[in-house]
Design a protein around this nucleic acid. Structure first.
Lengths: 227, 227
DNA sequence: CCATGAATGCGTTATTATGACGCAAACAAA
DNA sequence: TTTGTTTGCGTCATAATAACGCATTCATGG
């Protein structure tokens, strides 16, 4: 983050912080940045940046993702704005939090300029975070849980082509509950939101399941799945 | 709103704007303020105020509600933060929008210091609004529509005690669709989220229906109703 | 090379939830 | 007194759901 003084401004500074979700080896994980300066030097935090006077929130998100992490073109959604006056020891800083969904094509985050300080953490073993970022991450996880039931966003965490068992395990992981494999298959297929690619194989293909992809010919607004 | 210069600050100013919902004579309505100064002088806008350096968003909301409108203690929820650089002609101003739900006990808004400039408008006949407030109102209405299906917030728009026909018409109004009276009754009663007050009458009481109230002994987090 | 076990795709069935109504009692208005 | 409206309660056919069974495929290991 850039260095700047805070007390000389009458308006609070605006930070944009990012919760970047990925799905690695059947675990939900997020990207964290190891801070190299005070406050919270050495602590892991969400990647963030200050809002420039002419920037939009999304532009800041793009700037963070491209410059610091070397990735672009993700699902991006505003999460919440945080306003606790003491959330930043340097002074009054508001945080507008966004969350992003990253598919496996962008897992390799060695391209950014801060690649050495960036690491994926499983949601099961998050370290202690700086600022109020633990609160932000919890809210983001809740939002994601609610979201995958009513909007087709789960696919954003998988490859363009995926298998039904993969999608099934993704839902089980994010929701944190076991879901009957056969009922899930029936519901997601009946919804029409995914279509099979290539030719249909016969019978059951152990460890070579059928390949599906998101059906782009359907209105994403109507997606629901009752678990 | 207080007068202040904008160009002399390096950080954007933060406004908190309120979408105050009420339910009047079977219509959803919101509170609007007639601006007495530029920009948008004479235009109707959402009530709002600037964030003080030590204030939280909720505190600003309380300040607006109490000082300008003369009401307090409402359901209050953060809606979204708006960041279009040109949304305020005076300069860069972010807006953190909240929405409030007002029950009929607070409909009389003559208590506030700006009572003469404040008016309820039905959602069906909104005037042209200043700033980007039309966008904010639309998003608030969508959020409310989605919210009453999964959280028990509809009751916030009614008296403490209410009748089932009243609740039924409230849902029809907010969702904008006809809902079968008898199925709605069955679902909302089976949910256990409302309980009858007083003794049960027999048969059908034309224009004197049974009185209910929200069941406070139940976890609000599990509320759902499938229309 | 065959037996074993795990994973996948495709069913079935009992139970529940839903949508679309009917009907009588109460009550205001004519 | 009659008529029409509103409320509360109930019915029923259909759809959706949860909880399973089963055969096939295929990697693994003896």
């Amino acid at each position: 983050m850039e260095k700047r003084s805070f007390t000389s401004y009458r308006n609070p500074a605006i930070a944009v912080d990012l919760v970047v979700f990925g799905y690695h080896s059947e675990q939900l994980s997020i990207l964290l940045l190891n801070r190299k300066e005070a406050p919270f030097k050495g602590r892991w935090t969400l990647p963030g940046a200050f809002l420039g006077l002419e920037e939009t929130f999304r532009q800041v998100c793009q700037r963070i993702l491209e410059t610091k992490l070397g990735i672009a073109d993700l699902y991006l959604e505003q999460l919440y704005s945080f306003d606790q006056p003491n959330r930043d020891p340097r002074g009054r800083v508001l945080s507008v939090a966004y969350f992003a969904l990253v598919n496996p094509d962008h897992y390799d985050i060695t391209a950014g300029e801060m690649a050495n300080d960036v690491k994926w953490f499983s949601m099961e073993e998050l370290p202690r975070l700086g600022f109020d970022h633990t609160t932000i991450v919890q809210m983001a996880a809740e939002r994601l849980r609610a979201k995958i039931l009513y909007h087709p966003v789960g696919f954003e965490l998988l490859h363009h082509e995926f298998t039904l068992p993969e999608l099934h395990r993704l839902y089980e992981t994010i929701l944190g509950i076991p879901i009957d494999r056969r009922n899930f298959r029936r519901k997601i297929l009946d919804s029409g939101y995914i279509v099979m690619t290539g030719e249909k194989k016969t019978g059951a293909q152990h460890r070579h399941p059928d390949i599906y992809q998101f059906n782009s010919n359907i209105d994403p607004g109507n997606f629901t799945i009752n678990i």
